[in-house]
Write a protein that binds this DNA or RNA. Structure first.
Length: 401
DNA sequence: TAAGTAAGCGAGACCGCTGA
DNA sequence: TCAGCGGTCTCGCTTACTTA
């Protein structure tokens, strides 16, 4: 997702930004509903039978480009010293995620990895199909006759400025979610195929001095099985994750993904833009590196200057395979239809009439599940942060004046 | 045969023009 | 100034082709 001055907000349609601050939360809510529709089924075109299919919640991380300050806790919940400097850090400390030694941190490698993250994901999914074919003892070209790989993926910025990919990967039948998955396509097969694919994919590019640079996923590959229970328990006895808990995670990633704290809020047009950015030194260095690399002919096809404000990440915040779930367009069409129906209903009233509603019924209170609570909490947090930031900026302006 | 690459297509984002 | 519209661009998914 990017923000461009003068563009049209995809949520409200007004000419502000691609997702204006007012609508960022609605965008996040759409993303949340889109992922959850493919997760729990039951939505238009997505049968409830998806809950019977092999599904895994996968987290793919970026590799290390240098030691960064971090917060660690022991299994007993006790604080542990930072692996970078040996000191104890508070989780809210802005130093978290920043390099221990900015002079030796591989900013070029980090930007190039980020710029290739989408391509790395494409290679991963392709490799995953091949691993599935290998497991089934069939040819790669025959995989499509037996099953379809469906997934929804959310990109989440870490504090070090690199993205994580969180994906719900599902094995459907060849015709999609309504089609039964073949018997050999089990959770174990999916698990093994994901681990093999994640460990083997690489993309080779070159540094500005011509030195080869192999780009791959980080060592931390987390795979959790999705169980169809709606119990609010995060983890099952076998390490699996419930749909309800996973929907909560997705809600958190969706609202975080549309936030602006990790990157600049609009494309970089000039060096002066970078100089006046209200971001951390670490993120400014990443943006500067992307801007500088973007001037080199070797990286012309990466469009790094265009994506410098996103720390070099060119992909979309949320993507999905074609049959995974509903689309943003369908969600927005449904919203437009609902609004139209509401307006029409209202239009039947005489403007001079006074509508009196005197029959109220108690329907319930609060949110109905953990995911909705998570989404609401994340939105509330962002509103508070936005308010605090505005307050701080107002104070700065007042002092400057 | 496995692995890498390219092409076609769809979805979404961006941008400029026009008119109210 | 803003909304609407349409063309263009970018990225991801899928499939087919090429190469070792």
């Amino acid at each position: 997702m990017s923000h461009a001055e003068g563009a049209v907000c995809v949520a409200c349609g007004n000419r502000r930004e691609s997702v204006c601050p007012t609508c960022a939360d609605r965008y996040a809510a759409d993303a949340f509903h889109l992922i959850r529709a493919g997760l729990a089924g039951g939505s238009k075109g997505i049968p409830t039978s998806v809950t019977d299919k092999p599904r895994a919640f996968v987290t793919l991380t970026a590799p290390s480009f240098g030691a960064v300050h971090n917060v660690r806790t022991s299994r007993r919940g006790r604080s542990m010293p930072c692996t970078g400097c040996g000191q104890y850090h508070h989780p809210a400390n802005p130093i978290i995620g920043t390099p221990v030694d900015p002079h030796t941190y591989d900013y070029v490698g980090a930007v190039l990895w980020q710029a290739h993250a989408g391509q790395l994901w494409a290679r991963f999914t392709q490799r995953l199909r091949r691993e599935l074919a290998k497991a089934a003892g069939i040819r790669v070209r025959e995989v499509g006759e037996y099953l379809r790989l469906s997934y929804g993926k959310v990109a989440e910025y870490q504090r070090r400025g690199l993205v994580h990919f969180h994906a719900v990967i599902r094995l459907d039948g060849p015709d999609g979610p309504a089609d039964p998955t073949p018997g050999w396509a089990t959770l174990d097969v999916l698990d093994a195929a994901i681990r093999a694919a994640a460990a083997s994919v690489t993309i080779t590019t070159h540094r500005p001095d011509g030195q080869a640079l192999d780009l791959a996923w980080g060592e931390q590959v987390d795979i959790r099985r999705v169980n169809p229970t709606t119990v609010q328990r995060v983890e099952g006895p076998d390490g699996s994750i419930s749909e309800a808990a996973l929907a909560g995670y997705v809600a958190k990633y969706a609202t975080k993904g549309t936030g602006k704290s990790e990157a600049a809020d609009r494309p970089i047009r000039s060096q002066e833009d970078i100089d006046y950015l209200d971001v951390s030194d670490h993120h400014r260095r990443i943006i500067q590196t992307a801007w500088d690399l973007g001037s080199l002919d070797n990286y012309a096809d990466l469009n790094l200057r265009r994506w410098a404000h996103m720390l070099g990440f060119r992909g979309h915040f949320l993507t999905k395979s074609r049959r995974y779930s509903v689309t943003f367009g369908q969600l927005r069409a449904a919203r437009r239809t609902w609004r139209l129906a509401t307006n029409l209903a209202a239009a039947e009233l005489d403007p001079n009439d006074v509508l009196v509603i005197n029959d109220w019924r108690f329907d319930g209170v609060g949110y109905t599940n953990e995911a909705e609570r998570e989404l609401a909490a994340a939105i509330a947090t962002r509103i508070r942060q936005h308010r605090a930031l505005k307050h701080r900026k107002d104070n700065d302006h007042a002092q400057a004046a």
